[in-house]
């Protein structure tokens, strides 16, 4: 099939950027990124610079490959990362617009590559349980209700791809932040630091320049791991409790 691509090209963060048209021949069995490989091979053979995009595991778990395809982070198939999206979901002659994730807190580095280090900063603000190696009691010393463990796991499946921020008209990182708060806050081990964690992570999230949540739910719909905005409600709840119930 022949596809007409419109791809965002931007030399670096200072460049204004523009759309560039390309056409590429693909087959249905190709993944979206393999289609991009074919395009890049073409460009290299023409001695041009290939399109920069991030990718690594190509099995839907590392979270590198978020790009916005026809207005949707990771493209049209729900619950699927770009690397697992296959070209059979497109048809001959389709126009595809490929853009980087857009948010003020995710500046473009080059073409489709954006800087997501603000996510690391949010985790560093408290997205952990303070336990040094060697301090741990026996793994079975604290029983954890199965459903609770599952709920924590569901929140913990976040791959940090930034689709939520890309999908949000406000560029908000509430789904990402709340998923970590929920993962750790639901487990007894994580409850000890919950108050401190919530305050610190929210403060950092604000500082990084993310927008505010207006409960639209686009993040949840585009999240390749199906993380629910119930986590955002939990974060709000925890935040209120941490402000009014905390000692500080």
């Amino acid at each position: 099939m022949k596809l007409n691509l419109k791809i965002w090209r931007q030399k670096n963060s200072n460049d204004k950027g523009h759309y560039e048209a390309h056409s590429v021949e693909a087959t249905g069995d190709m993944s979206f990124l393999e289609m991009m490989d074919v395009l890049n091979e073409q460009l290299i053979n023409d001695k041009k610079e290939p399109v920069a995009f991030e990718h690594d595991c190509r099995e839907g778990i590392c979270g590198s490959c978020n790009m916005v395809i026809n207005g949707q982070p990771h493209g049209p198939q729900s619950g699927t990362t770009t690397c697992q999206l296959h070209m059979r979901h497109f048809k001959d002659g389709d126009d595809i617009v490929i853009e980087p994730a857009r948010a003020a807190a995710f500046p473009v580095i080059k073409d489709l590559v954006v800087d997501r280090s603000s996510f690391d900063d949010i985790i560093q603000a408290g997205g952990y349980i303070s336990v040094n190696t060697g301090q741990a009691p026996d793994g079975n010393s604290i029983p954890i209700e199965k459903d609770m463990a599952m709920q924590a796991f569901d929140a913990a499946t976040c791959i940090g791809c930034g689709a939520c921020v890309a999908a949000c008209p406000n560029g908000s990182a509430m789904l990402f932040t709340s998923a970590k708060v929920a993962h750790l806050g639901l487990l007894p081990q994580g409850k000890v630091e919950h108050t401190r964690r919530v305050q610190s992570m929210v403060a950092t999230m604000d500082k990084e320049g993310f927008g505010m949540c207006s409960n639209i739910g686009a993040c949840e719909a585009e999240c390749p791991k199906g993380i629910s905005i119930e986590n955002i409600a939990m974060l709000n709840r925890s935040y209120i409790a941490s402000v009014f119930g905390g000692q500080k």
């Binding site: 026809n70 857009r102 807190a105 406000n170 639209i216």
Partner: peptide, 23 residues
């Protein structure tokens, strides 16, 4: 604030789940 946090917008925009009212 939210508008500035989003920065520029997409060429094609199909925010899923987004109702006209919510946006």
């Amino acid at each position: 604030k939210n508008k500035s946090a989003k920065g520029s917008n997409y060429k094609v925009s199909t925010y899923k789940n987004k109702t006209w009212a919510s946006n």
